[in-house]
């Protein structure tokens, strides 16, 4: 009986090497443990044995069955493995490059704008917008800019023909329409449209009639800030702008207010910064924005009583901030759209 069992198993083990598919496995299984299988045949002998012989024979038979099950289980696992491999195809070389294009990048002006806006949101400013084609009143008159101010000159400002009608900036009477020269016009629209207290930042595109060179652009981007409340002070102005500078240029950046002149603020200042961390511009005072207290005439033009309300305003150039932060020396890069530029600054 031992011999019979050994022979049956040995035959199966010898055949096992050739098993590749599930069908071959089933066939082998049938030859071994099926109704007519070789091991099944030995089992049938058990009935012919004496009571004394049975325990020993039973042990032998159980051992043989276990061996057969292990053999079949092993084969099953091998066949399953082969089936999976066939379904998945050949193994890949993980060191090959991905054929897909990388994620796109946001424009550095977008990233700069979002950083700037995030800073002012922390101080309770909300984002406001206004039209790019603007009326002369919103862009100049309401901002206390005299009728013969050079900024209004055809030399410096881009105008639209008298026949132009804008749905977004309807004009009163025969005033001219122009491409806004600053986002300060959004101050006016905000004060006219909402009730103070107000804190807004207005990002947007502005236009000057400038020939394009390394520092001039046919259009550029500003972020305007306006805070109107019962008693807004120069200390508030400095507090807001110092916070912005430190958020933007790091805690080591210093600021100073340099007196200047704008028709729509009084007093007016340019803010300079000095930072140890600006490449070759490190350690120098650099102008970054204009600011001041809202001129009482602007408040009046917008229907607010200067005795009751006061405000601070500032305007900064996004290109300027991005150029300082990234060490860019030519404003034309922002509009050339060379991906080698855009990807570097992502």
């Amino acid at each position: 009986m031992q011999d019979q069992l050994d022979r049956a198993l040995s035959e199966a083990e010898a055949a096992a090497g050739a098993v590749r598919t599930r069908a071959e496995l089933e066939a082998l299984k049938a030859r071994l443990v099926g109704p007519n299988g070789s091991l099944t045949a030995v089992t049938k002998v058990m009935g012919t044995l004496s009571k004394e012989e049975r325990p020993a024979a039973g042990k032998l038979l159980n051992a043989a069955k276990a061996r057969a099950e292990a053999l079949l289980a092993g084969l099953l696992s091998k066949v399953e493995e082969a089936e999976l491999a066939a379904a998945l195809g050949p193994e890949v070389d993980p060191t090959l490059p991905s054929p897909d294009a990388p994620a796109g990048v946001l424009h550095p002006l977008t990233r700069t704008r979002e950083r700037v806006l995030a800073t002012f949101r922390k101080l309770g400013f909300v984002v406001a917008e206004g039209p790019e084609v603007e009326t002369e009143w919103h862009c100049f008159d309401a901002l206390n800019t005299p009728a013969d101010h050079p900024a209004r000159d055809m030399q410096d400002t881009l105008y639209l023909p008298a026949s132009f009608r804008s749905a977004d900036a309807p004009r009163k009477g025969e005033e001219a329409l122009l491409l806004r020269t600053h986002t300060s016009s959004v101050q006016v629209r905000t004060m006219l449209g909402r009730k103070p207290p107000l804190r807004i930042v207005a990002p947007g595109r502005c236009f000057r009639r400038d020939a394009v060179d390394a520092t001039h652009s046919a259009n550029f981007h500003q972020v305007e800030g306006l805070w109107v409340d019962r008693s807004v002070t120069l200390a508030d102005l400095r507090g807001v702008l110092d916070f912005f500078v430190k958020e933007t240029f790091g805690p080591d950046a210093e600021t100073r207010l340099r007196p200047s002149f704008f028709p729509f603020t009084e007093p007016s200042f340019e803010m300079d910064i000095r930072s140890p961390d600006l490449g070759r511009l490190s350690g120098r005072w650099l102008e970054i924005l204009g600011c001041g207290l809202v001129d009482p005439k602007v408040l009046e033009a917008c229907g607010l009583d200067p005795a009751e309300w006061s405000g601070l305003a500032f305007g900064l150039g996004l290109e300027r901030i991005a150029m300082l932060q990234h060490g860019i020396d030519d404003i034309r890069h922002f509009y050339a759209n060379d991906l080698r530029f855009l990807r570097q600054l992502a």
């Binding site: 909300v126 200390a235 400095r238 507090g239 207010l257 200042f269």
Partner: peptide
Amino acid sequence: IDLVEEYVRVHGTASVPVGRPVATAPLE
């Protein structure tokens, strides 16, 4: 207000204190 500018300008802008703006949340 113009005299305020003259005072700040000549007295020195360094004398303008750095305020601590209270961040309110305007309902806008």
